[in-house]
Design a protein around this nucleic acid. Sequence first.
DNA 1: CCATCACTTCGGTGTACGCCGAACCGTCAC
DNA 2: GTGACGGTTCGGCGTACACCGAAGTGATGG
Lengths: 226, 226
Amino acid sequence: MAADELATLAALLADRSRARFLLALLDGRAWTSGELAQAAEVAPSTASEHLTRLVQGGLLVERRQGRHRYVQLAGPKQARLLEDLLAYLGPTDPPKPTLSASAANQALRRGRTCYDHLAGRLGVAITDAMAARGLLTEDLTVTDDGLTWLTDALAFTPPATRRPLARPCLDWTERRSHLAGAVGAHVCTHLRANDWVRRIGTGRAVRLTPTGETALRDLLGVSPPA
Amino acid sequence: MAADELATLAALLADRSRARFLLALLDGRAWTSGELAQAAEVAPSTASEHLTRLVQGGLLVERRQGRHRYVQLAGPKQARLLEDLLAYLGPTDPPKPTLSASAANQALRRGRTCYDHLAGRLGVAITDAMAARGLLTEDLTVTDDGLTWLTDALAFTPPATRRPLARPCLDWTERRSHLAGAVGAHVCTHLRANDWVRRIGTGRAVRLTPTGETALRDLLGVSPPA
DNA sequence: CCATCACTTCGGTGTACGCCGAACCGTCAC
DNA sequence: GTGACGGTTCGGCGTACACCGAAGTGATGG
């Protein structure tokens, strides 16, 4: 019965600590068990048990390395699941923006990674610019022009997998769709590889470097997000 | 914290009986408390408690009428949430198709309602036909031609709400996208209002009537789904 | 080798909650 | 009225599980 599977899946998410883990892992990086324990404010033993459950449930994959246990979202499918759930909870702006939280929030709103692609104002700006140039349609599929541009300007080669080239991902700070899928992921890696964009600290927030700023202006006419 | 809300939402779904309720309610109709209790094979008292939780959680709305309590999915947003989750669980063909289950499955695969629109081979066939005639783009947005066609042939008037006109919905039997959103809902009601399509028994399965078959052939060139 | 460190396993505790049957409360039909 | 019926409330039972600290394992680094 499909109901049982649905309930089992939901049960996997139906815990405060596990939900915190997953939200943290939405940055697409691999975290160690200890880091996650600290982030979720639980004992290492507790975290360990949660992680085995999440791995067994297929939401995470793990990689043991020395005395560390790295876990990561199992794939785009799992990331998408979380995005969908967050989109449902959706428009929940922080009720009481404290000062430091607000500063962190500012950075997050300006630009951040969303699993493997860019989100926030930066992500939306890039998406809009690509759409304005006819590289994407309005509903975020790649045009023919877009494909040649990606190949030429960004050294993109379409993967052989069944993963969709491009798809919209709902941004919960901007309440707008932005570019995800294989192309979204490629744009993100390309920008990070060229140091056009850099992580702020250890979180998901990113900022545009000066080089990146000029590069994006030349490439797409993107003006620096305010 | 977003994690808490995610966990709370998931907890609402993380129960066998509640999941059964929700799946049943995916047909978009209003069910009584007793019907659901029977469908999920729990005592009426148990069902009653579950329903209050689901209503409080915002997934269902209720309407008391005489000694009956009717519940229904709260809206398209909630239906979509369930569809997304099912899409994640996704390609789960029945492992051991028994004979009667298989017959019921055949009917479901042929055509059914999916919350408020049509799915199964019938839903996909209609979607494809509309796309082939240029009424929809490949990624299921309504073209200008499509809008005039909908107005003329199906007496469609775009609603004033923010609900998207058309959007893709992933079909888990066909593994294909089909037409959902306001247009999808309209197509479904129109076909049922004209008795082109009729429910089989009390479930979600539907079948094309002879009238509907010719009507769809004339209108869209849809040949009867095998 | 020994100490440290990241992580896991285990035992124990507390709580949440899914379930039922029995009693109860309106509504409807006669 | 009275009785049947749909639904709810309540008490009680059993289980699942989230959590922790303490003890154990295995890699790392002096």
